Amino acid sequence: VRLVQFQKNTDEPMGITLKMNELNHCIVARIMHGGMIHRQGTLHVGDEIREINGISVANQTVEQLQKMLREMRGSITFKIVP
């Protein structure tokens, strides 16, 4: 398990697509080339996201998580399992 932190201070999309796997874990499905996450190089396709800013992603839908990420500003921390 590791923590990945980055800054999001604009309306620029993060450039990641999330999916739920068969165990209902949140997985990074795709990283858009040239997007914020791609430029930082901190997340990778297949990484499992456990928490966003200390909030568990368990029992949340992809749509709920994407909305939460769109609305966040400032420092964002993901707890991930590579």
Rank of each mutant, 00 (worst) to 15 (best):
V1S: 07
V1G: 10
V1W: 06
V1M: 15
V1K: 10
R2T: 10
R2M: 14
R2W: 03
R2N: 15
R2Q: 08
R2V: 07
L3V: 13
L3M: 06
L3D: 06
L3W: 06
V4R: 04
V4I: 07
V4A: 05
V4S: 03
V4F: 07
V4E: 05
Q5A: 15
Q5N: 15
Q5K: 15
Q5M: 15
Q5W: 07
F6N: 01
F6A: 09
F6E: 02
F6R: 02
F6S: 03
Q7P: 05
Q7L: 11
Q7S: 10
K8A: 08
K8H: 06
K8R: 11
K8C: 03
K8S: 05
K8N: 07
N9Y: 07
N9P: 10
N9Q: 13
T10F: 14
T10E: 08
T10A: 08
T10K: 11
D11M: 07
D11N: 15
D11F: 04
D11R: 11
D11C: 06
E12W: 03
E12H: 05
P13M: 07
P13Q: 05
P13A: 09
P13S: 10
P13C: 14
P13K: 15
M14V: 12
M14Y: 04
M14G: 03
M14F: 12
M14I: 15
M14E: 03
G15R: 02
G15K: 02
G15N: 03
G15D: 04
G15Y: 01
G15I: 01
I16M: 08
I16G: 00
I16D: 00
T17S: 09
T17A: 08
T17M: 10
T17C: 10
T17K: 14
T17W: 10
T17R: 11
L18C: 04
L18N: 00
L18M: 06
L18H: 01
L18R: 00
L18G: 00
K19C: 07
M20C: 05
M20I: 10
N21C: 05
N21H: 04
N21Q: 04
N21M: 04
N21Y: 04
E22H: 10
E22P: 11
E22Q: 14
E22F: 04
L23I: 15
L23T: 15
L23K: 13
L23E: 15
L23M: 14
L23S: 15
N24Y: 04
N24K: 11
N24A: 06
N24P: 00
H25Q: 14
H25M: 12
H25S: 09
H25Y: 07
H25F: 05
H25C: 12
C26D: 01
C26G: 01
C26S: 01
C26R: 02
C26I: 15
I27H: 12
I27F: 08
I27D: 00
I27L: 10
I27P: 00
I27G: 01
I27K: 05
V28A: 02
V28D: 00
V28P: 00
V28E: 00
A29R: 07
A29L: 05
A29F: 03
A29K: 09
A29P: 00
A29E: 13
A29C: 04
R30Y: 14
R30W: 06
R30N: 14
R30S: 13
R30G: 13
R30C: 09
R30T: 09
R30I: 03
I31V: 09
I31D: 02
I31Y: 02
I31M: 05
M32G: 07
M32C: 13
M32K: 15
M32S: 15
M32P: 07
M32V: 14
M32F: 15
M32I: 15
H33N: 12
H33G: 09
H33F: 07
H33Q: 15
H33K: 14
H33P: 14
H33D: 12
G34S: 08
G34M: 04
G34V: 03
G35V: 02
M36Y: 15
M36A: 15
M36C: 08
I37R: 02
H38L: 03
H38T: 03
H38S: 09
H38D: 10
R39Q: 11
R39D: 07
R39H: 06
R39W: 02
R39C: 05
R39N: 15
R39T: 08
R39Y: 03
Q40W: 05
Q40S: 10
Q40L: 09
Q40E: 14
G41A: 08
G41F: 02
G41P: 02
G41Q: 06
G41T: 11
G41K: 07
T42N: 10
T42W: 04
T42E: 14
T42Y: 08
L43C: 03
L43T: 01
L43D: 00
H44F: 06
H44M: 11
H44L: 06
H44G: 08
V45S: 04
V45Q: 06
V45A: 10
V45F: 02
G46I: 00
G46Y: 00
G46Q: 02
G46A: 02
G46S: 02
G46M: 02
D47I: 01
D47C: 02
D47A: 01
E48T: 06
E48G: 04
E48W: 09
E48P: 00
E48N: 03
I49T: 02
I49G: 00
R50C: 15
E51D: 03
I52N: 05
I52L: 06
N53L: 00
G54R: 05
G54T: 05
G54L: 02
I55S: 11
I55L: 10
I55C: 14
I55F: 09
I55R: 13
I55K: 13
I55D: 10
S56C: 06
S56F: 04
S56V: 09
S56T: 11
S56P: 14
V57H: 01
V57P: 10
A58M: 10
A58V: 11
A58I: 14
A58C: 10
A58G: 12
A58T: 12
N59S: 10
N59W: 05
N59A: 10
N59L: 07
N59K: 08
Q60W: 09
Q60K: 13
T61I: 02
T61D: 11
T61C: 06
T61A: 08
T61V: 03
T61G: 12
T61K: 09
V62Y: 05
V62K: 06
E63M: 06
E63G: 11
E63S: 11
E63F: 11
Q64R: 09
Q64C: 13
Q64L: 08
Q64H: 15
Q64V: 09
Q64E: 12
Q64K: 12
L65F: 04
L65G: 01
L65K: 00
L65H: 03
L65V: 14
L65M: 09
Q66L: 07
Q66H: 10
Q66K: 06
Q66T: 12
K67C: 14
K67F: 11
K67V: 13
K67S: 10
K67P: 04
K67L: 10
K67Q: 09
M68F: 11
M68Q: 12
M68K: 13
M68V: 11
L69N: 02
L69D: 01
L69I: 08
L69M: 11
L69V: 10
R70T: 12
R70D: 15
R70M: 12
R70N: 11
R70E: 14
R70L: 13
R70F: 13
E71K: 13
E71G: 13
E71Y: 14
E71T: 10
E71W: 08
E71A: 11
E71N: 10
M72Q: 09
M72N: 06
M72I: 15
M72P: 04
R73V: 10
R73L: 06
R73D: 13
R73P: 03
R73W: 06
R73F: 06
G74C: 02
G74P: 02
G74I: 00
G74T: 03
G74N: 04
S75L: 15
S75G: 13
S75T: 14
I76V: 12
I76C: 11
I76P: 02
I76N: 05
I76W: 04
T77W: 12
T77S: 13
T77A: 11
T77P: 02
F78P: 00
F78D: 00
F78W: 02
F78C: 04
F78N: 00
F78Y: 02
F78E: 01
F78A: 02
K79Y: 03
K79A: 15
K79F: 02
K79P: 00
K79W: 02
K79S: 14
I80K: 01
I80N: 01
I80V: 14
I80P: 00
I80Q: 00
I80R: 01
I80A: 02
V81T: 08
V81S: 10
V81H: 08
V81G: 07
V81N: 06
V81L: 13
V81A: 09
P82A: 12
P82Q: 14
P82F: 03
P82V: 07
P82G: 08
P82I: 04
P82W: 03
